[in-house]
């Protein structure tokens, strides 16, 4: 279980969170939506303490990661897979070295076992046979899928996805959505997905949360979201320029 309690965060003069609260239950597939620049990526980074809040607590399975020792943080991070927005593949390493790195660092597997594991995960994301390619040789969609393979190689309990379908064609996006749903339902992984792709949100989410103006202003199932009369949510889901969310609000 992940709990954000009363989070405040500023970057210089820019306020990102003002008393944000959010709880994520095990097994959920939570989709966080919100305008660009509202703090979605920053929220994911708080979960694994890549960033610290100015005040407030982030509990991971009951441990406040804000206050705990860095040794403990490294232990906690092993429960997570993180799919970064651009993939963040290590560009000096091949696809198989990228996916194998966590295994090499954290397990005592031998070369063969690692190769099997890498092949298994590549197959899962539909990228079999690409082991020897360099990241630069991959298209955007392939990078994302390799990034997902790398994030799941340690079989994490939680996977954090930062805009997994942004910039992909609709067919590839559908394929990635399917993968996220499969991981969540078949492997019982808790998924936290940041996106501004509403279609994806409806497909993936067991719950949708809207981040606006420093806090979560709506949270509910896709069905609840569709019938909600929250004006911000309605404007966002329908993609309207007119409404309570002003474009000038955007950073």
């Amino acid at each position: 279980m992940i709990e954000f309690v009363n989070i405040y965060k500023n970057f210089g003069k820019k306020t990102v969170y003002q008393g944000l609260d959010l709880t994520i239950q095990d097994g959920e597939s939570l989709v966080i939506i919100g305008q660009s620049g509202v703090g979605k990526s920053v929220l994911l980074k708080h979960i694994v303490r890549l960033l610290y809040p100015d005040s407030g607590s982030v509990y991971i399975d009951g441990i406040n990661i804000v206050k705990t020792s860095s040794k403990k943080v490294f232990e906690i991070r092993k429960k997570f897979g993180f799919v970064f927005q651009g993939g963040a593949l290590f560009d000096s390493m091949t696809v198989s070295e990228n996916i194998g790195l966590p295994l090499k660092e954290h397990t005592s597997m031998n070369e063969n076992q690692m190769a099997d594991k890498v092949a298994e995960k590549l197959e899962l994301v539909g990228m079999q046979g690409t082991q020897q390619l360099m990241p630069i040789e991959l298209s955007g969609g392939m990078r994302k899928r390799v990034a997902i393979a790398r994030a799941i190689v340690m079989e994490p309990a939680y996977i954090l996805y930062d805009e997994p379908t942004t910039g992909l064609d609709p067919i590839l996006a559908a394929k990635i959505n399917e993968l996220i749903v499969d991981l969540n339902t078949k492997l019982n992984v808790t998924g936290i997905v940041v996106t501004h792709d509403i279609e994806s949100a409806y497909t993936i989410a067991s719950r949708i949360a809207l981040l606006h103006d420093g806090s979560i202003i709506f949270s509910g199932t896709p069905e609840q979201a569709k019938i909600s009369d929250n004006p911000y949510l309605r404007q966002f889901l329908r993609g309207q320029a007119e409404g309570p969310i002003k474009i000038s609000d955007q950073s």
Binding site: K45, V48, L50, F74, E75, R77, K78, F80, F82, F84, Q85, G86, A88, L89, F90, D91, S92, L101, P102, E105, H106, R150, M154
Partner: peptide, 21 residues
Amino acid sequence: AELGTMKVTEQIDALAAMAIN
């Protein structure tokens, strides 16, 4: 330049996120 590129493309974050210091 190498590390800076890794920083701005979140590769350093990715490393930390996979529990590698």
